[in-house]
Write a protein that binds this DNA or RNA. Structure first.
Lengths: 225, 225
DNA sequence: TATCTTTCTCAGAGGTTTCTAATAAGTTGG
DNA sequence: CCAACTTATTAGAAACCTCTGAGAAAGATA
């Protein structure tokens, strides 16, 4: 699940980001409404979390925009003002749910998961991904290879999960940058190669090798050579 | 978990009852508001599910009654009318959540569980919590590690008890802040880390270590490394 | 009131992760 | 086989997260 958080207060935004990340939920952030809007146009999020009070474009307007252009994406509104008018405004602008600050963090997580389930923008992740003797538990982020527990960092895990989801298909570096690193423009980085190397060290020391390089194209995860 | 369903339409009520029962949730039913009220007075429910339109005493009034007399019991409102006025009325009368008919049954279950978790009907604590040679007596708040008595402050004890209750599971800082400190939206404190450190000094000087840090996620209490 | 305990913040030390950059190794087409 | 290009590997810088000691503030005790 991947969530966009549109919130101008950097502290609040980071609090939400950290919290969701540690719950295993992917997060992108926009710090004002206009940027939020262009991010929504360019990527597919499962849920959008919107602060009401923002410079540029306020939460209600952005919510209306989402509902007009991407009606399938559910929206949760956040506001510091717990008054009735705000709730009404929130519903009027089409928000699917509403949370008044300060809120219990757990509540945000529950509501996010509930919305994502109700409006399944993408197929839900299987609880368990496998390829031969490589096993990944997507809920706890635990990984085994040949019956041995392997510990991965967050980035390594994200990369492996993505490769597993597209196992048997060639995946380009640009695709990995987009989906694992959230980098959408062409930078001159070899970070993908570095992390593929890390992954190989951790899960591909034994035979048969699962990660294969396709020269000039990208990588592929599969059992046969 | 035990739920009271107040709904005058027998068919709808039975549908809900059957469904919840098969989810392992205990259900009692009242077929009008007045009877519902007396049942609430006489028993302790974890959540009350209220239909808006009922003879005798309508849902809003009953909801107001619950919130005045039993503010700890969460309320979910049901209505056939999905209009804005109804939502506003629902929130005004103090409902914790709101579901418009027709609703997906799963959605009701999900919201029920979310509410029950948010307002935990104190499930009786086991008298004794243990992990290896760590022993906690929950009635006297006494703690032993490796047969040695350890004295903890109130906060240290609360933290340890929570970790023990969730032993084997990763617990995030946000979760600890919410459940041990009752802080729901503090963005910038390291008090959890400080207390984990205190706890480690008092109960984790000996091998094997029981408190483990999961980098970027939180902590876990377990025997293996 | 004086003293001790508990709770919490702050700041800096210490670790881990992430990423860049440089070099080594491998692949391809002529 | 060689030159040009792609990929692999490594080291270390930078960013970020966690731990820890010191002390302020609030509360308890006597």
């Amino acid at each position: 699940m991947h969530v966009l958080v549109v919130e101008d207060d950097a502290e609040v935004s980071q609090f939400i980001q950290k919290g969701l990340t540690s719950e295993g939920i992917g997060v992108s952030a926009a710090y004002d409404g206009v940027i939020g809007r262009s991010m929504i146009n360019e990527h597919q999020y499962d849920v959008v979390v919107l602060d009401v009070n923002m410079p540029g474009m306020n939460g209600y307007d952005l919510c209306r925009f989402v509902k007009q252009n991407w009606p399938a994406i559910p929206v949760i509104m956040l506001t510091a003002l717990g008054s009735l008018e705000n709730k009404v405004m929130g519903f009027e602008s089409g928000a699917d749910d509403y949370l008044a600050k300060p809120f219990a963090f757990k509540e945000l997580v529950f509501r996010l998961k509930a919305l994502a389930r109700r409006h399944p923008a993408r197929a839900p992740l299987p609880q368990r991904l496998e390829l031969l003797d490589l096993v990944v538990d997507t809920s706890s982020h635990q990984v085994w290879r040949a019956d041995e527990r392997v510990t991965l960092t967050a980035r390594e895990y994200a990369l492996l999960e993505y490769l597993l989801l597209r196992q048997g298909k060639v995946v380009s570096r640009a695709e990995l940058l987009e989906n694992v690193w959230d980098v959408h423009f062409n930078t001159n980085t070899n970070v993908v190669d570095v992390y593929v190397n890390y992954l190989r060290r951790k899960i591909d020391r034994v035979e048969p090798k699962l990660i294969h390089t396709i020269f000039g194209v990208g990588f592929i995860l599969k059992a046969e050579p």
